[in-house]
Design a protein around this nucleic acid. Structure first.
Lengths: 220, 220
DNA sequence: AGCTTAATTTATCGATTGATAATTGTAAAG
DNA sequence: CTTTACAATTATCAATCGATAAATTAAGCT
């Protein structure tokens, strides 16, 4: 008969791999909600283990956060996405819609958006490396494909301008900001992610021709 | 001759109003950098006062944060901005550019962007009230003026659609995201704020006509 | 079953947290 | 120059933080 009537408190033994996974996934949810300043004591309670157990799997809180960050962001950039953007057998509208549909399936989640912002605000070095990744493999590629789709000169003729970069960043930022509105400010959003992407891609494609013209690019 | 050779430590007396202002402004910078979990001890050191002094001016840390939030966001929405957007004697491109130029002069600062995100993540109630303010006084107004500028039916004929709202939110989000890239992820941005706004407004105006057409709106 | 390994817990540490009370010192009033 | 009001300090608190060591117990092996 236990002292606390309602606490049978059966202790469960998991394999180190399984327990480690449980801790990391619990930490993702917990840190997404409470930020990285959330205490390891509260985290342990949230997961359902004792606090010292966390230190059996991670030498310090810093290492746990690194594991969270690695699990969330590293390797979640699917290499197939690059191929989708570059596949010129499809219309650019199709490709952009497809790409952002898949991209949003990953990033438009409260855990992803919130942890991403928390880590950015804490200026963990890994976050500073994510923006260049996006710029190189999404933004730049989109600019290149837009040049091709509108019959504009290639990069060998005219290098990409600030204006073209900013147009693509605006598409990207607008879609990202949708996630911020939903999961940070938690305001009701009218449109579904699908509709938002359709509208954003349309807006970008409608607008990018005019942007190109205004900076003196002409069809070859 | 003081014990610590390099610490003359002359005590300065300020008026309560002045000292309060010093604390709030110091807190804005400090919390923008360290988040609201930054300790009052470190904050006091940052300001150059002792920690208990803060509690002479604010009954709790919560109240200090409220003062920071109030100082940063309340009343910084200039009422003249509404007039700028609605002034139909100017072209819509002019008005949008002018509006976002002034708006960005306020929000595109590390303190503003970072505190705004921190407070959003902490889900302080006041943040949830800011998005509706923006939607009512900027987004909605932009949609209405776009209808007028493109000769589309008024709100009495056809209510604003999700697509039109999302187009305006994308403009807004793209511009906001520029601040996130600069002050949260601290990546070098190619274009100046001015160029970004010009490009974004152009992109929006070029695109919004196509969006309107795609949802079945026709010129009256 | 009994033994053994190691996964998990209890107990505890010094440092730091938000917050309070008592003391000190400055600048204006007389 | 002395007095006095109150701004600002030092000293201190219980609670909570990240982290460690020792004790406990569940599960695989023989």
């Amino acid at each position: 008969m236990p002292e606390d009537a309602a606490t049978p408190k059966k202790r469960k033994r998991y394999s180190p791999e399984e327990r480690r996974r449980m801790i990391v996934e619990g930490a993702i949810e917990f840190f997404a909600e409470n930020g990285f300043d959330g205490s390891t004591h509260q985290l342990a309670k949230y997961i359902g283990v004792t606090q010292p157990l966390i230190y059996q799997y991670f030498p310090s809180k810093e290492d746990l956060i690194e594991a969270v960050y690695s699990e969330l962001f590293q390797g979640r950039w699917n290499d197939e996405w690059d191929g989708i953007l570059a596949d010129r057998s499809r219309s650019l509208e199709d490709r952009l819609t497809d790409f952002y549909q898949r991209y949003c399936a990953v990033i438009h989640a409260p855990d992803w958006i919130r942890v991403f912002l928390y880590s950015g605000l804490k200026e963990m070095d890994i976050t500073q490396r994510y923006a260049p990744l996006v710029e190189e493999r999404a933004i730049r590629r989109i600019c290149i494909e837009a040049r091709d789709a509108f019959g504009l000169p290639g990069l060998d003729k005219v290098p990409l301008s600030h204006e073209e970069f900013e147009a693509a960043w605006m598409l990207h930022g607008g879609i990202f900001y949708y996630g911020v509105r939903r999961f940070v400010y938690r305001v009701p959003v009218e449109a579904s992610t699908e509709k938002l992407i359709n509208a954003s891609v349309k807006l970008y494609l409608e607008g990018v021709g005019g942007v190109a013209k205004s900076i003196g690019l002409s069809v070859s």
